[in-house]
Amino acid sequence: MELNHEIIDTPPRDAASVVMLRDGTQGLEVLLLRRHADSAVLGGAYVFPGGKVDSADSGGATLARLDRPVAELHARLGEPALSPEQAAAFYVAAAREAAEESGVLFLQVGAREIATHSAATCARLRAGESFAALLAEHGALLDTDALAPWSRWITPRRPSVMNKRFDTRFFLAAVPLLQEAKHDDHEVTEARWLTPRAALAQYRAHEIDLAPPQIVSLLHLMQYRDVAHAMQHARSRPPPLIVPEPVEDGDTRVLCYPGDPLHPVQARALPEPVPTRVVWRAKRFEPPQGFGPWLD
């Protein structure tokens, strides 16, 4: 992953991402998907399932398939500047992208979650069929209760690792029981369930590539003992806004986050001991003191 120094003046694109969790034998695990090496966005990197918000995500047919009123989802997201329909579209985009990229369906029929993986439904979604039409065909609603708003990241005008800007809402979600993630083998070429510690260890060993939002999010996830703990915390506070501030320290590139002395926002967005900055060192972003305090 090469460092990018280009200044980008275009507004960021709205996007949504799902940080999918499960409880494993070694503790909380997170799903990481490897983007195709030829992808224009973070090619070859391991990311959380997600993608851009489409116009259909806020369409009437789609919003009619939600399990909660759009006003309630608007309040949960905690962004008064958005309309209720715009807020709801982030939930839709998160669930749609999760289904397309990982094959996990956050749906419910009646009062019950859909418990089994539907490869046919996900394949049809990947082929371009309407999400709303597929939901209606199954008599299903989108299970927005499964998606807990967690954080909001806006790519700065001088991005760190790519030449596109996104305004991404991250949601936490427990993978429904009996469902198994299966990557699409098109946009995504590999799926790994890893503890946050194991993922960061593989990154430190140059076995996988991660972008700064994933690095910092994995450090954040290390604070949770299990899925229930993570979900409870996400639902207990508004999602923090994180706009990285690029700073040059001699020949070293630094990305600062809210609460850092060099960031314009002095209030911390993420809890201790998550670092308030990462530095570019040996072709890797890492905390200033390295990963030792978290991994050794």
Rank of each mutant, 00 (worst) to 15 (best):
F166L: 13
V278E: 08
V227N: 08
G128C: 04
L73Q: 12
V227E: 04
M20C: 10
V92P: 13
R157E: 12
V19Y: 08
P196K: 00
E97R: 11
R277E: 13
V265P: 09
A228I: 01
E129V: 02
V41H: 15
T189Y: 08
G24L: 01
E6K: 14
Q179K: 05
D14F: 09
D14C: 03
A269G: 13
L107Q: 11
T25F: 09
R65A: 03
D184Y: 03
Q179P: 12
L66E: 07
D167V: 00
A111S: 14
F106R: 05
A201I: 01
R22M: 02
A115D: 12
R235L: 10
L178H: 13
L141C: 04
T62E: 13
T144A: 02
D9F: 11
R165I: 00
D185V: 00
W193N: 07
F90M: 00
P12Q: 07
Q179S: 03
W193Y: 06
S39D: 15
D260I: 00
A211G: 03
R197I: 00
D67K: 01
V18H: 09
I242K: 09
G110H: 04
A267N: 08
T168W: 06
Q86V: 00
A181M: 05
R22G: 06
W150C: 09
D184G: 05
F131R: 06
G139T: 04
A173S: 11
V47S: 02
Y203F: 12
P239T: 01
P11N: 06
H138A: 15
I242T: 12
R35V: 00
L73H: 10
S39T: 00
D184W: 06
L82F: 13
A199S: 05
W150E: 07
C256P: 12
A95T: 05
I8E: 05
P240L: 04
K182Q: 15
H220L: 13
L32N: 14
F285K: 11
V41Y: 15
V188C: 09
L28P: 09
T252H: 06
S17H: 07
K182V: 08
L125F: 08
V274L: 10
L210M: 06
R76N: 01
L177V: 07
R253Y: 13
T121A: 12
G290P: 06
P244L: 02
D249F: 04
G110W: 02
I7W: 15
F285C: 07
W294A: 08
S17G: 08
R76H: 03
S102D: 06
A120V: 02
M1W: 11
A115Q: 14
P264A: 03
H229K: 07
V279M: 06
R13K: 13
Q232I: 01
D23S: 10
E272F: 11
D226P: 11
K52H: 11
V53W: 09
A127E: 15
T168S: 13
A98S: 15
A123T: 07
